[in-house]
Amino acid sequence: MLLDAAINDLRDEKTGERVYARPADTRARINGRSGNLTAQSPPEPRWNSRIIRIRDAQDKEAFAELFAHFAPRVKAFLIKSGASPAQAEDCAQDVMATVWTKAHLFNPARASASTWIFTIARNRQIDVFRKQRRPEPEDLPWGPEPEPDPAEVVGLQQETENLTSAIAALPEKQRQLIERAYYGDLSHAEIAAVTGLPLGTIKSRIRLALERLRRAMT
């Protein structure tokens, strides 16, 4: 199906070459509906289960798979953020080691695997290359439920995949703006492009989860 093909074609794994050209109607399809994205085995829950196996069983095989997928991406992110390849290599290994040691903090109802790993890489980048501390918001006590609601997990995964597809389907120029913003190379006045993304749905979903949590705590 067209949409699945579009997602699979994002990048050639071997060359890292990007294939972003899209027929104009692809974007409308991606933004217009959301069910089809999960018709084929979606990538995110697979990564979630790997992290949970690391958390619960110190599973090195699961870690090796996660590493093969994310370490090259984290390294590329760090290089684009201004690190030398050698620094980025060292830092990417550090980030992936943190994925293991902090696996118990991963909550798939709050963030997908890629989002969670991005935040670890970003924080490490600030720490190592910008030599700054990174103040983090106070954590909310996400109890009493030990495991997150599966429906929430699936919902967040879907929205995350919709967002990834929407970013990939943006016109090259807009996509570059967002990329540059996230790699620290953009004045704030230029960032309006982000408003075209389906962020409202993700925000509402997280907001609802927070409200449920607040109710549960009172």
Binding site: S114, I167, E179
Partner: peptide, 8 residues
């Protein structure tokens, strides 16, 4: 943050 994850 999800945008960052999607870019990654």
């Amino acid at each position: 943050d999800c945008v960052g994850g999607a870019l990654l």
